[in-house]
Design a protein around this nucleic acid. Structure first.
Lengths: 140, 140
DNA sequence: GTGTTTGCAAAGTGTTTGCAATTTA
DNA sequence: TAAATTGCAAACACTTTGCAAACAC
């Protein structure tokens, strides 16, 4: 009767990424990965952790977000100079971004097709294509 | 004999934007607008100004870039959290960006078409569409 | 002259880092 | 107990701001 231990899936994920499943990493990973697709900033995630009485320092949140990103569990989205956003959806996709509310929303890759990809500059190859559709509240 | 004064076009442009043509603004405007399409950061423009013996403070460069942007003479390009880039090409277009060298390159709007624009979230309308094609040196 | 603009230095924001103390395996 | 991780505080990079002096009109 191989009873599933709590968090075991997440612990495995951390182990697979060669990251020790410390209390802090576990807490952050649960917040990030147990609730569907999410977009967080270091600060928003830190706040959320604290609000659930998880003691984590902001520095550790930053470090952890980068470790998860390096491990392919998150990806970074650049939509604002100033703040970094991290996305739990690591399948290639695009974004709506509302500058007013600073809310990100995914656009599945299939919902937005690009035609006529231009040739990259001399000696360069394409790494990644990011489309950001900036939105505003209707009539503002 | 209406001899064209030097800089008169730029002075007019500043006046039209209700910006007094001060020594600093003139110098920066000449650097920005007299050499075809350019992508600058506050720091790169400041360096260039100093290298031509134009005395301008970095704070003034920042302020001026924002004033020019507000006046529609520049537009801001978000490709990196941390640094802000300003583009003298204000016609809607997209960008190649090489993270390694931090070089931006324009992609004319006509060279990259989008199909199947997705519907924006409830109550939102599209403001602007930014495509960034991130590149890397071939084979790296 | 009057209002605008500048430059400095200080403050601000988001992020990273050095290092001693703690935790993990 | 050896190596990894954490938290703090300090350092960082970039940007903005308050204000007195300088400038444009």
């Amino acid at each position: 009767m191989n009873k599933t231990r709590p968090y075991s899936a997440i612990i495995e994920r951390l182990r697979a990424a060669k990251l020790r499943p410390t209390r802090q990493r576990l807490a952050l990973a649960r917040l990030l990965f147990e609730g569907g697709d999410r977009h967080v900033t270091a600060e928003s995630l830190h706040k959320q952790a604290l609000s659930q009485n998880e003691r984590v320092s902001l520095a550790t949140v930053y470090n952890t977000l980068h470790q998860f990103t390096r491990a392919g569990m998150l990806c970074e989205v650049v939509v604002e100079s100033a703040r970094s956003y991290f996305d739990t959806n690591t399948i290639h996709h695009h974004h709506f971004f509302c500058e007013e509310s600073q809310v990100l929303k995914d656009i599945p890759c299939a919902d937005l097709r690009l035609l006529d990809l231009p040739t990259p500059p001399q000696g360069m190859e394409i790494n990644q294509i990011d489309v950001v559709i900036r939105t505003r509240p209707r009539g503002s």
